[in-house]
């Protein structure tokens, strides 16, 4: 059924349901019956409804619970499952940590390799060919377009998902949030910060 992994390096097709939707969408787009940009607008409206708050929960827990952070480092798939966020397809999750010296950035091609149980729907730009190629060739340029400036001594690591491994960036905990609870921290963890194109929101942007 879904997601048969081949021994070669080719891309595994998504589930039968996802394929049928893709077939329908591409046929209707070709005939001009639906506008792909209009579909993106609708899907974007609901992107927060599939789940980046799941990932934010994982990150906020890791910021506030050192024992959880250790478990997340040791086996992210199991630690994420502790919070009841599990994929159907058994993909292996790996958490990559940002700190003062390292900034991590995640790329892949299509939603078949996006960690949707924790990040929800992939944004349209994430699936675009330009992002995919430029994130590898010029990651600092891509980060700058997202308004993310890094010091020269910060190393940028780019992680390309494989068919078995999905990456989740653990952003740096914003300054000035000492003593904050998990619930207070969750709103600071944007989807983009978990892909690595932005940092977590500063404490000043916490919603009242």
């Amino acid at each position: 059924m879904a997601h048969d992994h081949h021994g070669d390096d080719m891309t595994a097709p998504p589930s039968d349901m996802a394929l049928r939707v893709q077939a329908l969408e591409s046929l209707l787009v070709e005939k001009g019956l639906v506008d792909p940009r209009a579909l993106d607008v609708i899907v974007d409206r609901y992107e927060n409804r599939v789940g980046p708050r799941n990932g934010a929960h994982v990150v906020a827990r890791a910021w506030t619970d050192p024992a959880y952070l250790e478990r997340l480092r040791a086996d992210a798939t199991a630690a994420i499952a502790e919070l009841d966020y599990t994929g159907r397809q058994g993909e292996h999750m790996v958490v990559v940590e940002n700190d003062a010296k390292v900034h991590n950035l995640v790329v892949c091609t299509l939603c078949s390799c996006y960690p949707w149980p924790v990040l929800g729907l992939p944004p349209a730009w994430y699936k675009s060919s330009p992002y995919r190629s430029r994130a590898v060739i010029d990651p600092r340029g891509v980060l700058a377009e997202f308004g993310t400036e890094l010091n020269d001594d910060v190393e940028v690591k780019v992680w390309d998902s494989t068919s078995e491994v999905r990456f989740l960036v653990l952003p740096e905990r914003p300054a000035g949030t000492e003593g904050w609870t998990e619930e207070q921290l969750i709103p600071l963890v944007s989807r983009n910060s978990m892909i690595g194109v932005e940092k977590a929101r500063p404490a000043s942007e916490a919603s009242a």
Binding site: P14, S15, M17, A18, V21, Q22, L24, E25, L28, V34, A38, L39, I42, V43, Y46, E47, R49, V50, C111, Y114, W116, G120, L121, P122
Partner: peptide, 9 residues
């Protein structure tokens, strides 16, 4: 994600 796409179509 495919559910949201089907919904959007």
């Amino acid at each position: 994600p495919w559910e949201a796409t089907a919904f959007a179509i």
